[in-house]
Amino acid sequence: MSKFENVTAVKEANIYHNGNVTSRTLEFSDGTTKSLGIMLPGEYTFGTNEAEIMEMLSGELDIKLPGEDWKTLNTPETFNVPANSSFDLKIKTVTDYCCSYIK
Rank of each mutant, 00 (worst) to 15 (best):
F79Q: 08
I15G: 10
I15W: 11
T72H: 14
S2R: 05
D69M: 07
E50C: 00
F79L: 06
T78N: 03
D30L: 08
I38E: 01
E27A: 12
L40S: 06
G59H: 05
A9C: 02
E5S: 10
L73V: 05
S100Q: 07
L89R: 14
P76Y: 12
S58H: 00
E52K: 05
L57F: 08
D30Y: 04
D62V: 06
I38A: 02
T93A: 12
E60L: 07
I53S: 10
I102F: 03
E55N: 10
K90H: 09
A51F: 00
A9I: 13
E55R: 05
D96L: 13
T48M: 09
M39S: 15
K34Q: 09
Y97H: 00
T22A: 13
Y44I: 10
A13Y: 14
T8K: 15
R24H: 02
L89T: 13
L89H: 13
W70C: 06
N49D: 09
V7C: 12
G37F: 07
S100C: 02
E55I: 11
N49I: 01
F87Q: 02
L57P: 00
I91V: 14
E60N: 10
R24S: 04
I91G: 02
L61E: 00
L61I: 12
S85N: 09
L73F: 09
G31T: 05
D96C: 03
I91K: 01
E5L: 14
P66T: 01
Y97I: 04
C99V: 13
M54N: 05
A13R: 12
N6D: 14
R24Y: 09
K34I: 05
E52S: 03
L26G: 01
E77H: 15
V81T: 01
P82D: 04
T48A: 00
S86V: 01
H17F: 15
E68V: 01
N14V: 14
S58P: 04
A83S: 07
N49C: 01
A13V: 10
T32M: 02
I102Y: 04
M1C: 14
V7E: 00
K71C: 08
K34P: 07
E43Q: 15
F87C: 07
E5T: 06
N49R: 07
T93W: 02
N6C: 02
G47K: 14
K71I: 02
N84Q: 08
D96F: 06
E52G: 05
K103R: 10
L36G: 00
E43N: 14
S58Y: 07
F28E: 09
E52Y: 03
N80A: 03
T33F: 09
N20F: 15
A51V: 05
D62P: 04
